[in-house]
Design a binder for these strands. Structure first.
Lengths: 334, 334
DNA sequence: AACAAAGAACGAAACGGTTCGCTTTGCACA
DNA sequence: TGTGCAAAGCGAACCGTTTCGTTCTTTGTT
């Protein structure tokens, strides 16, 4: 049974109110301060956050809910978010949606029940219904990376469509015409990036055969399979654009197992520069998202909502720009 | 401002005590039950877990603290743990130690403050000091994957040394003599597995040149670099044993970039079968840990401690056995 | 019909803090 | 020496639950 404020009262003779004041940074007489410090040390006193939260309705804790804890992208995001939040003195409470809308809704309620001061979500659901409990409880929510159907939320992300469009220019400028895409069809970012790909191809007046358009799961296996199949086509593309990290990783491995060589036989442009490009030969051209900045901006935005900024103010959408990590994976065609 | 029990009292005319009883599964008259259900629905009432926790000192929440949220191994563990805990009706609170002992200690205190009922830790620290706050608060702790210096804790893991030793037999039985190891030197599992490697070599009466013993960081880059260097040696080993997932991944990529072919020129035996082996050619021989079982046993053990089993009972160490995932990455030597 | 026993409902006291409004203290100044 | 004022301290109410001991109601028994 841990010590309480009342134990400290017994030891110091001060009133509960004064002790509480001290604990929250208020002024007390130097003499009392030393008494308090001694008592706290001696009793190993620590504030009971449950009790404090009960009356203040604040916990100095924010929840982060990601669609899958197994995704490396989220892992990296979580690290940056954690660092930023800890720096501000906030505790972090991570929850995993397990790629399941049901679990996501449940986890969100869990976080709201824990009385977190705010929530950052990388959603699995496309609809915003599951956020309802947070809205009702007045807990601010900031989305990251993925939007929801209704745009009525604070959100920090990149302009996926434009990023893909711009990246494609790199392939086009290098003379590529037969370009395939491997993307994930089941989530916001994949769909947007695929649109960007198609925009670029259309603007360049290039047709995209069905066989060049591989839209499937967001998974290493899918990238691997797709790349293998592309290389088995009668008319093999000269370049492939891959729209996320897992798919890129699978595709790279697939190529390495064939007699095709990158960039000589096949050019590659990937997405999300995580550990991969530091390691692989040839160095990959990559669209890289400013993950650290993304995290910091999300935290910043959330903090504004938490302290003060009225919930009525219209939602803010922050679009960050990507950059292209140079590499040797793209060949210049005649 | 969410509805409270008192709002329900106002609406139903029942006493607070009765309502609480109902909420906790107690018996009430059928007539009152329907009244309560209606009121709860209408008011969107949800129990305030803070208030409940304050008086019960239980939260039906367990904390999981991992050394790094970015590690795929931990990601997978977290998913299994989450599933098992949710199944039992427990909320899960994930924390990241960021590979930093300071942050680890702080996060542990955070979890204890949140009054979690128990904590599962994959530690970064080697000493058990940082667990002190949990011990004082009487919060049970179960370690996973890694032990601490003093063995006075419940722990679920594999017998790393033995697993490595057994795995090595596979290489030896296939006639390999010149075997190198790439392992992480800075953490429990890496060290143990390296010992197992050395045991096997010693028992077989084989020397291990320094150049064949690459003990460094637990990172993909390290595996990559090390494998490259091994293949550049004058006397290239015929087989390489890699003691964790990240290192294995890096090593595989390194080989694929050279003219060496696995298993013809170099045999490989890796550790931790995550997505890698489903994707890579040739299929890798892998030591696989029963990660799901590990998670479930850890949860089981924790539950025993949480409900009843006295803290005085001696710590339990559960050693799970590994198995070898067959592949084609090992060549039989004459 | 009287009474015991079981089952529900109840009021009030916790749990461990914060905070409001009031009292006391200490000190500068006239 | 008396006055006024700010700073520090204090008691008590409150946050939203659970739980304990008691009272009320119902049912079954003789």
């Amino acid at each position: 049974m841990p010590a309480t404020i009342r134990d400290i009262r017994r030891m110091t003779g001060l009133s509960v109110a004064t002790i509480s004041k001290y604990l929250n940074g208020g002024n007390v007489l130097p003499e009392n301060r030393t008494k308090l410090e001694a008592a706290i040390r001696e009793l190993h006193y620590e504030v009971n956050e449950l009790a404090r939260g009960l009356v203040t309705n604040r916990t100095r804790t924010v929840g982060v809910l990601v669609y899958s804890i197994e995704s490396l992208f989220n892992g990296t995001l979580l690290r940056y978010l954690g660092e930023a939040l800890r720096r501000l003195g906030y505790g972090v409470l991570i929850c995993d949606s397990c790629e399941d809308e049901e679990v996501e809704a449940q986890s969100l309620r869990f976080l709201v029940n824990k009385k977190v001061d705010g929530i950052i979500v990388v959603p699995v659901s496309h609809r915003s219904d599951f956020l309802q409990p947070a809205r009702e409880a007045g807990v601010p929510v900031v989305l990251m990376d993925r939007s929801l159907d209704d745009e009525e939320h604070d959100c920090v992300k990149i302009d996926n469509r434009m990023a893909a469009f711009r990246a494609m220019r790199l392939l086009l400028e290098n003379g590529h015409r037969k370009i395939a895409v491997i993307c994930s069809a089941c989530e916001y970012t994949g769909v947007e990036r695929c649109k960007g790909f198609l925009d670029a191809m259309e603007q360049a007046g290039l047709p995209v055969p069905d066989a060049y358009r591989r839209c499937g799961r967001h998974a290493m296996e899918y990238g691997y399979q797709s790349m293998k199949e592309l290389l088995r086509l009668e008319d093999v593309p000269t370049a492939v654009f891959m729209t996320n990290y897992e798919i890129t990783l699978g595709a790279v491995m697939a190529v390495k197992e064939t007699t095709y060589r990158c960039p000589d036989d096949i050019s590659m442009l990937g997405f999300d520069d995580l550990i991969l490009s530091q390691v692989v030969e040839p160095k990959m051209y990559m669209v890289v998202q400013p993950m650290k900045e993304m995290s910091e901006r999300a935290v910043e935005l959330l903090m504004q909502r938490i302290r003060g900024r009225e919930a009525e103010e219209p939602p803010v959408e922050i679009l960050l720009s990507t950059r292209i990590q140079e590499g040797n994976s793209i060949r210049r065609l005649a």
